[in-house]
Nucleic acid binder design. Sequence first.
DNA 1: CCATTGCCATACTCATTAGATATGGATTTT
DNA 2: AAAATCCATATCTAATGAGTATGGCAATGG
Lengths: 301, 301
Amino acid sequence: MDLRHLRYFVTVAEEGHITRAAERLGIQQPPLSQQIRALEEELEVQLFRRKPRGVEMTEAGKALLVDARRILDEVEGALSRAKRTARGEQGRLEVGFTSSAPFHPFVPRVIRLFRENHPKVSLVLEESGTSNLVAALRAERLDVAFIRSAMPKGEGIRVYPLLDEEMFAALPKGHPLARARNEHLKLTYLAAEPLVLYRRASGPGLHDGIVAACRTAGFNPRIVQEAPRITSTLNLVAAGLGASLVPESLRRMRLEGVVFRPLAPRPRLVAPLRLACRSVDHVPAAQRFVALVRREAKVLP
Amino acid sequence: MDLRHLRYFVTVAEEGHITRAAERLGIQQPPLSQQIRALEEELEVQLFRRKPRGVEMTEAGKALLVDARRILDEVEGALSRAKRTARGEQGRLEVGFTSSAPFHPFVPRVIRLFRENHPKVSLVLEESGTSNLVAALRAERLDVAFIRSAMPKGEGIRVYPLLDEEMFAALPKGHPLARARNEHLKLTYLAAEPLVLYRRASGPGLHDGIVAACRTAGFNPRIVQEAPRITSTLNLVAAGLGASLVPESLRRMRLEGVVFRPLAPRPRLVAPLRLACRSVDHVPAAQRFVALVRREAKVLP
DNA sequence: CCATTGCCATACTCATTAGATATGGATTTT
DNA sequence: AAAATCCATATCTAATGAGTATGGCAATGG
């Protein structure tokens, strides 16, 4: 069985006429007669009755015609789907992000953009810590991930810088340091403060950056608690357990009981936003996604 | 595009290994490599990534695999459906019958039998007069028909005798002749009776048989009304408009107000039941039906 | 009623291509 | 480092799809 047989069969069925069908197919009549006959012999079924003026379908032929048309359609559909998938216009893309990533407007914006440009790609979003995200990338449970670390160690992962956010101090409402809302806060003022930080295991990059900055400022931070999610961190701050240091975009949470203050420019403390993917990735949609995100990152202020 | 390509592709995808796939397909490895490559070139899509130990599907390949499997299944299904149709095990069969036919248990029995043996053939039943039925057969609106005439004139129709039923007199309840219920009734007793008969145009065979028998018995029947259906005939008898002559099987109607009496053996008056079909019929299910009905007719008492 | 026409089938040839064999190259395993 | 594994390439053969020529059969038209 060959698709050519089906195509020929459908044409002959439609024309009711081998000679005309051959014309339409751009071949000669005898080969077409032979192919039809070959198909009949293969199926051990007579598909046409030869009449002096053309051919006439048998019942079996009528039954096959319905199926043959559908099959040919499906083949076309399958091919175009395969091509679309190869162009990254279809398929499934699993995107991971750290708990803090979606607060920066850049992340929801590029996701929305991608959905608009590739409506046939079904996006699966997953939130987790940077370490988990990178592991998931390696295990191919994820295709791309928004992370906070500067650079995960280990091969096979490529990380593109997207943007750097200023870090802000998050202070419990009513805290003495929380009064001068919009003024720069020197990091050293936090030396004696109890700190609540995002769990190091989840996001070592951000955590280590904070500790390093504190050391540069001349003190060892007093970390009283670590939370598994950046949002939990802020809730703990609101509960008065201590202060925290979070990326600026977290301000938009407008959490009751938390006051944000910008940090003094030195020591510089920034929260990088990065896009991680496999260095060799064959998921076309992922490549598209990476390209789109990098393009958008460039036009940032 | 060729179904072979799809089959090869599916096998390679399943094995993840061109060499093993070639073994399973019963060909050598190089041609298989070539075919896969040819498929990729035709689609302009990479389907596999060549790895040192086997091959690995791309996203486009995964997308195609799903479709390819389904298409191959559908092709198989289409072929078997075509074969089944050719064997008359599937399709559509339009069966006609005169209004009196279904009262004889033979007709419902063979229809039930056929349904059991050919569950995939959808039966369409249509009631009409013998003349209409034969015309419908010619026009291919029907495939087979149970009729009452001995032989319709004209070419292209073949008629098989199935059985002959005795004719019974149907008398209005309370009619003098209706008293001796189970005794033979001599046809001459009906000479003066008003008769209600099945319309000649609908079933000329039965009608003419009755008139001929009356003439043999020595009288011209006094036909006061003709009804388009045998059941209407009996209703008219019940209403007292006259007597009628109907096939024995009509007795099972047990119509209130009608009394049946067997007729005297001479002149013999029988109602034939016949099966009509086209002499050249290419509907396989019709051939099956005819064969079954004839076989069943032979085992009748 | 015979000649013509239209259409499909058959016979044969040619061109294409699927498949076989041999071999090379890359990478992992031992 | 050698062997093994597996895919790719090159070349040849065989199968087959397509083309050309022709015959046969039934319907149509004088």
